[in-house]
Measured scan of single mutants.
Amino acid sequence: MISLIAALAVDRVIGMENAMPWNLPADLAWFKRNTLNKPVIMGRHTWESIGRPLPGRKNIILSSQPGTDDRVTWVKSVDEAIAACGDVPEIMVIGGGRVYEQFLPKAQKLYLTHIDAEVEGDTHFPDYEPDDWESVFSEFHDADAQNSHSYCFEILERR
């Protein structure tokens, strides 16, 4: 099963200049909980913004210009990325925008964090048809001392 995991502000903004323009430790914990011990696929820009392999996960970098870091697996196509994951129950696609666009048609599940923030962004989550998805989990949280904005975790499964 292919799943996408993303944090989205208003207007589906997911990033600005290779960074997330908010401070939500709870979302980072949600991300870790849902990706640990699963292969993660990301684009080169996302890889560069993280700066290191995510521990406890097979890191697969999709790029037309593969790098030389041998701590991760470099691939040039969506099919190659899927094959590099091996026989696993769930593959997690973690961004960025172009990689989400490439995998959305193949995805069966979306793990979304909806952030109540209007922020400037240069990267967006692809538009998706809500009628194609069923919400199977939703959990709202107010902003607090650690988390700069209110947010809602949601899991959607393709109908």
Results as ranks from 00 to 15, higher is better:
residue 42 M to Q: 13
residue 53 P to Y: 09
residue 60 I to G: 01
residue 32 K to Q: 03
residue 139 E to R: 07
residue 143 A to V: 07
residue 125 F to H: 02
residue 24 L to M: 00
residue 69 D to N: 07
residue 92 M to K: 02
residue 76 K to R: 06
residue 138 S to Q: 14
residue 51 G to K: 10
residue 148 S to K: 00
residue 154 E to F: 14
residue 24 L to R: 01
residue 99 V to T: 03
residue 47 W to Q: 15
residue 146 Q to W: 06
residue 18 N to R: 05
residue 119 V to S: 12
residue 68 T to M: 02
residue 150 S to D: 11
residue 29 A to G: 03
residue 101 E to Y: 07
residue 148 S to D: 02
residue 80 E to N: 05
residue 144 D to N: 05
residue 82 I to A: 12
residue 71 R to M: 06
residue 30 W to Q: 13
residue 99 V to I: 14
residue 87 D to T: 09
residue 89 P to G: 09
residue 74 W to K: 05
residue 70 D to E: 08
residue 71 R to G: 11
residue 102 Q to A: 11
residue 42 M to N: 01
residue 103 F to N: 04
residue 60 I to V: 10
residue 158 R to M: 07
residue 92 M to N: 13
residue 39 P to E: 14
residue 131 D to W: 09
residue 134 E to D: 02
residue 114 H to T: 14
residue 61 I to Q: 01
residue 41 I to W: 03
residue 157 E to L: 05
residue 146 Q to R: 05
residue 152 C to K: 14
residue 86 G to V: 13
residue 95 G to L: 01
residue 112 L to N: 02
residue 124 H to Q: 15
residue 44 R to S: 15
residue 140 F to G: 14
residue 40 V to I: 09
residue 91 I to Q: 08
residue 132 D to I: 14
residue 21 P to R: 01
residue 147 N to G: 03
residue 146 Q to K: 06
residue 149 H to I: 02
residue 49 S to D: 04
residue 137 F to W: 06
residue 150 S to E: 06
residue 143 A to E: 07
residue 47 W to F: 13
residue 56 G to W: 07
residue 129 E to G: 13
residue 91 I to T: 14
residue 101 E to R: 09
residue 17 E to D: 08
residue 103 F to P: 02
residue 29 A to N: 00
residue 109 K to L: 12
residue 129 E to F: 12
residue 37 N to F: 11
residue 159 R to S: 13
residue 64 S to P: 02
residue 125 F to T: 01
residue 44 R to K: 13
residue 30 W to M: 15
residue 67 G to S: 11
residue 26 A to T: 02
residue 145 A to M: 07
residue 15 G to P: 01
residue 53 P to F: 12
residue 106 K to H: 14
residue 9 A to F: 02
residue 124 H to F: 02
residue 92 M to Q: 12
residue 16 M to Y: 00
residue 72 V to F: 14
residue 71 R to N: 10
residue 34 N to F: 04
residue 157 E to N: 07
residue 122 D to I: 00
residue 121 G to P: 00
residue 60 I to N: 02
residue 118 E to P: 14
residue 30 W to A: 09
residue 127 D to H: 14
residue 67 G to H: 04
residue 92 M to S: 13
residue 86 G to I: 13
residue 50 I to V: 05
residue 108 Q to R: 08
residue 81 A to W: 03
residue 147 N to A: 13
residue 20 M to S: 00
residue 32 K to W: 01
residue 109 K to H: 14
residue 87 D to W: 09
residue 153 F to Q: 03
residue 59 N to S: 10
residue 129 E to I: 12
residue 120 E to Y: 13
residue 144 D to I: 06
residue 119 V to M: 08
residue 53 P to W: 11
residue 128 Y to T: 06
residue 82 I to S: 13
residue 118 E to C: 12
residue 115 I to M: 08
residue 142 D to F: 12
residue 76 K to V: 11
residue 69 D to S: 10
residue 113 T to A: 07
residue 63 S to D: 00
residue 15 G to W: 00
residue 152 C to V: 09
residue 31 F to R: 00
residue 106 K to V: 11
residue 140 F to E: 14
residue 84 A to V: 08
residue 57 R to L: 00
residue 91 I to W: 13
residue 87 D to E: 08
residue 125 F to Y: 02
residue 51 G to C: 04
residue 78 V to N: 14
residue 86 G to F: 10
residue 16 M to F: 01
residue 68 T to L: 09
residue 112 L to Q: 04
residue 13 V to T: 11
residue 63 S to F: 02
residue 16 M to A: 13
residue 94 I to V: 06
residue 77 S to I: 14
residue 83 A to V: 09
residue 15 G to S: 00
residue 92 M to F: 15
residue 67 G to I: 06
residue 29 A to H: 02
residue 90 E to Y: 04
residue 67 G to E: 14
residue 36 L to Y: 08
residue 135 S to Y: 09
residue 20 M to A: 00
residue 136 V to R: 10
residue 18 N to Q: 15
residue 5 I to T: 00
residue 89 P to C: 13
residue 129 E to N: 09
residue 148 S to L: 00
residue 158 R to E: 06
residue 132 D to Q: 09
residue 23 N to V: 08
residue 12 R to F: 03
residue 105 P to H: 06
residue 105 P to I: 06
residue 92 M to P: 04
residue 64 S to G: 13
residue 124 H to T: 13
residue 15 G to E: 00
residue 78 V to K: 11
residue 159 R to G: 13
residue 159 R to H: 12
residue 83 A to Y: 06
residue 9 A to T: 15
residue 36 L to K: 13
residue 90 E to G: 04
residue 16 M to K: 03
residue 105 P to Q: 09
residue 120 E to K: 15
residue 108 Q to I: 04
residue 76 K to Y: 09
residue 20 M to L: 00
residue 119 V to H: 03
residue 147 N to V: 03
residue 7 A to S: 02
residue 48 E to G: 15
residue 97 G to F: 02
residue 85 C to L: 15
residue 117 A to D: 09
residue 77 S to Q: 13
residue 116 D to R: 15
residue 137 F to M: 11
residue 29 A to S: 04
residue 16 M to E: 02
residue 92 M to E: 01
residue 59 N to P: 11
residue 102 Q to Y: 15
residue 138 S to V: 09
residue 126 P to Y: 12
residue 22 W to H: 02
residue 37 N to Q: 08
residue 113 T to P: 00
residue 158 R to S: 09
residue 66 P to T: 06
residue 93 V to G: 05
residue 65 Q to E: 09
residue 145 A to C: 08
residue 33 R to I: 12
residue 30 W to G: 13
residue 108 Q to S: 09
residue 39 P to N: 13
residue 65 Q to D: 09
residue 135 S to I: 14
residue 8 L to W: 04
residue 91 I to H: 04
residue 20 M to P: 01
residue 129 E to P: 12
residue 32 K to F: 03
residue 126 P to Q: 15
residue 106 K to Q: 15
residue 115 I to W: 03
residue 117 A to Q: 10
residue 14 I to C: 13
residue 97 G to H: 01
residue 144 D to A: 05
residue 32 K to H: 03
residue 83 A to N: 10
residue 18 N to L: 13
residue 122 D to Q: 01
residue 98 R to D: 02
residue 122 D to V: 01
residue 90 E to V: 04
residue 140 F to N: 14
residue 113 T to V: 15
residue 141 H to T: 09
residue 74 W to A: 10
residue 75 V to D: 04
residue 82 I to K: 09
residue 137 F to H: 09
residue 84 A to I: 08
residue 59 N to Q: 04
residue 81 A to H: 01
residue 47 W to G: 10
residue 154 E to Y: 15
residue 4 L to I: 13
residue 30 W to T: 14
residue 51 G to D: 10
residue 151 Y to L: 08
residue 30 W to L: 15
residue 151 Y to F: 07
residue 29 A to K: 04
residue 30 W to I: 05
residue 34 N to Q: 14
residue 10 V to L: 01
residue 18 N to F: 13
residue 130 P to S: 14
residue 50 I to S: 00
residue 106 K to R: 11
residue 69 D to V: 08
residue 42 M to G: 03
residue 122 D to C: 00
residue 17 E to Q: 01
residue 105 P to L: 10
residue 10 V to F: 03
residue 79 D to E: 05
residue 34 N to M: 03
residue 137 F to K: 10
residue 125 F to S: 01
residue 48 E to D: 06
residue 90 E to M: 03
